[in-house]
Write a protein that binds this DNA or RNA. Structure first.
Lengths: 345, 345
DNA sequence: CGATTGAAGGCGAACGTTCGCCCGAACGTT
DNA sequence: AACGTTCGGGCGAACGTTCGCCTTCAATCG
C-alpha cells in the first residue's frame, strides 16, 4: 500500500505553494516557464496523480457517464454491445470521462434508480438506450434538466438530444433491393406491440412497396417476438399461402428473425437467394458466415457512439449540442441470401 | 437544477446534529428508535442522497471496479461480453459497487494506465481479463498489493486470486465425445503462439487422445488465428491428406474456427455430423442456429462473474478470498455437428 | 520620480462527508 | 453515598482538492 502523494508533497519538492501546483495542473494560473517545469518535474518524480475524490467533491462532478442496457436472452447475444461500448468508452476517455455501468432496473424502479444516481452525484450524465414512446427515463431527465443523450427517439413533441439510426430508411433500402431482384410479393417479419423502433422500421417497408406501386397483402405481415422460432414459424406459414399470394421474399426487422426465416425456407426445399430472398438488420457477427450469408443492414455504431459522447459532454458542460438531433443512415450489406443469380423473369 | 440536500439539512429537520444523521445512515451509532425514525423521515421528505464524492474523499474509496477488455474484430463480436457484463454489474451492485469501464490500453502503456487508475483512487479494484503468461498487469498489481481478481490464470508460481474456466477439461470432453462417436483420427484447430488459454485447451485434446490410446499425427494439429478463414483453410488441408491419415473430425478451440471448419467440410461434399464431426468452444449466440447446429462448450459465465465479484470485494475489504483460486468446468453442449446418426462402424 | 499596471504566486476557505473522542444523564453496584 | 458503566448524541477535525482574492515586486508610464 503506497503512501498517498498529495499536492502538498509536490509543492514542498518544487518549492511553491500547493495551490500553485493545482493551478499548473489545471492549466490556469500565471507561472514562469521555469517554475512550471520544476513543478512538472516534481510531479514526475513523485509519481503524483490527482485524487479524483477530492477533485470531484470540490468541482461537484464525477467524470462518469452512466449507462445501462437490457440484457439479451442467453441464446441471443447483443450483436453490437461490444462495438458500442468500445466506441463509447474510447470517445469518452478522449473527453476525460469514463463509463459507469449500472444494472438494468426493473421498469417499476427505473426512474428511481436514475434519480438516485443523479442526486448522489455519482454520474454527470446518462446515455439512455432502448428508448420508446413515453419513455419515463427521458421524461424524468428532461424535467430535472439533467444532462443526457438518448440512443433512439421518443415522443416527437419532446425536445431532447438524441442520436438514432434511420431504421425506416434502412428497411426501405432492403425492400427496394428485393424489388430490384424481381420480387413482387414480399413479406415483413416485424416485432410485436407498440415499439418505437419496430414501428419506424416497418414504415420503411410500406414506403418501398408503395413507391414501387406494389400491393401489400395483410397476410404478409407477421408480428412476433424477435426469435429464431418466430422467424421460422412465420415463413412456414407464409409458404403455405395459396400460390397466387405466396411471397417470394421476406424482410425481417432483425437478424435473428432473418436466420429463422432462412432455415424455414431451406427446410421447405427452397434455395435461399434464388427462390426466396431474405434480409435482416444489424449485421450480427457471424451473419456473413451463415449459409447463405445474410443480406442485412449495418448500423454505424462507432459514429453513433462518438456523436452520443460529444453531445453528452456538451450537455454536461452546459452547452446545447448542435445539432441537437442526429439521424444516421444504416448501410445495406448485400450478401447471397437476397440475390438471385442468373434468374429469369 | 435541484438544490443539493446535505446532511445538515436533514439534521436541521430532524433536530439532531448532522454527524448523528451520518451515523444512522451508516448503521453505526447509538440512537433511540424514535430519533432514528425521525431521521429517516427527514431523509425521505427531503429526498436526501449521500454525496458520493464527499464520502469517497473521506473514506478513501470509490465504490468502483475497473474493467477493460480487448475489443474484438468487427466481423466477430465477443460472444459472451453481454452476459458477462450483465452478471458482473448485477453482482457488484449487490455489494454496493459499480463497474467502471476504461479503454483497452495498447500493450506499451498498459501498466501505466492501471497505475494511474489506482494512484488517482478512481477504482477500488480491478477485474483483469484475457490473462497470459508473464502478464505485466498481474505482476504490477501483485507488487503494489492492489486489490484485483483475474479471469484466467497466469504463471503458476504467482499467487493471486483468480477464477478460470477449465478449458483443458472442456476440450477433453469434446474430444472424448468425438471418440465415443467412433472417430479415431481427430484434428485439432488451435491458436497460434504462446497463449496461456490456447495451450491449456490444447492439452485437453492430448489428454483425451492419450487416454483412448489413439495416436496423434502431427499433421492433424493446426495453429492459426481465430478466424473463419483459418478454420476453413485448415479443414481444406486436412481433407487433402492421404486417406489413411485423413481425419474424420476436428476439435476447434473456439466457435469461430469451428464455423469455418463446418463450411469447409460442407463445401467438400461431406455431411457434417455423419461424415465429419466438428466441435467448438464458447457457445456463441447463434451457434445453435447454424446448419448443422454446433456442438460446443458453454462457459458458466454467470458463476464466473459472481465468484469474481465476491472475491474482489473480499480483497478490497482486506480479506483474503477463500478459496483464492477457482476453476469452473464448462459444459459440453451436444448438437448435430458432432453426432453420427445411425452410423455403422 | 512617484504612480500605475500586470505578472507570479501565496493564502484562506469551502466542498460534504466520516471518524474518533468527549460529555452528560441514567442506571445499577458495592 | 460514592463509584463505575452504558447509552445517546454532540463536537472538532480531517480527507485533498479548486477557487477567488490578495500580496508582492518589477517594469512601465506620464
Amino acid at each position: 500500500m503506497a503512501e498517498r502523494v498529495t499536492l502538498k508533497d509536490v509543492a514542498a519538492r518544487a518549492g511553491v505553494s500547493y495551490q500553485t501546483v493545482s493551478k499548473v495542473i489545471n492549466g490556469n494560473g500565471n507561472v514562469t516557464a521555469e517554475t512550471e517545469a520544476q513543478i512538472w518535474r516534481a510531479i514526475e518524480e513523485l509519481g503524483y496523480r490527482v485524487n479524483v475524490a477530492a477533485r470531484n467533491l470540490r468541482t461537484n462532478a464525477s467524470g462518469l457517464i452512466g449507462y445501462t442496457w437490457a440484457p439479451s436472452p442467453p441464446d441471443r447475444g447483443n450483436p453490437i454491445l461490444d462495438q458500442f461500448l468500445t466506441s463509447v468508452v474510447t470517445a469518452a476517455e478522449a473527453h476525460g470521462y469514463h463509463l459507469m455501468l449500472f444494472p438494468h432496473p426493473p421498469a417499476i424502479e427505473e426512474v428511481d434508480v436514475y434519480r438516485q444516481l443523479m442526486r448522489s452525484g455519482r454520474v454527470d450524465g446518462f446515455i439512455v438506450a432502448s428508448t420508446n414512446y413515453d419513455d419515463p427515463r427521458i421524461r424524468l431527465l428532461i424535467d430535472e434538466a439533467f444532462p443526457f443523450v438518448a440512443f433512439g427517439r421518443s415522443n416527437p413533441e419532446w425536445d431532447f438530444p438524441y442520436v438514432d439510426v434511420d431504421g425506416r430508411a434502412g428497411i426501405r433500402l432492403a425492400t427496394e433491393h428485393l424489388i430490384e431482384q424481381g420480387h413482387r410479393a414480399i413479406a415483413l417479419l416485424a416485432w410485436p406491440g407498440h415499439s418505437r423502433v419496430g414501428a419506424d422500421r416497418a414504415e420503411g417497408y410500406r414506403d418501398a412497396m408503395a413507391a414501387a406501386g406494389l400491393p401489400v397483402d395483410p397476410a404478409w405481415i407477421h408480428h412476433s417476438e424477435s426469435a429464431f422460432q418466430s422467424g421460422y414459424a412465420a415463413v412456414q406459414q407464409l409458404l403455405n399461402l395459396p400460390a397466387d399470394c405466396r411471397p417470394t421474399a421476406a424482410v425481417a426487422l432483425d437478424d435473428t428473425l432473418a436466420i429463422g426465416a432462412i432455415r424455414a425456407a431451406l427446410d421447405a426445399g427452397l434455395r435461399v437467394g434464388a427462390d426466396f430472398g431474405v434480409t435482416g438488420f444489424d449485421d450480427a457477427p457471424g451473419a456473413q458466415y451463415l449459409s447463405p450469408p445474410l443480406t442485412t443492414l449495418r448500423q454505424p455504431i462507432q459514429q453513433v457512439a462518438e456523436r452520443l459522447t460529444e453531445m453528452l459532454v456538451d450537455s454536461i458542460h452546459g452547452r446545447t449540442p448542435s445539432p441537437k438531433q442526429v439521424i444516421l443512415p444504416p448501410r445495406l450489406i448485400v450478401r447471397a441470401s437476397s440475390v438471385r443469380v442468373g434468374r429469369e423473369d
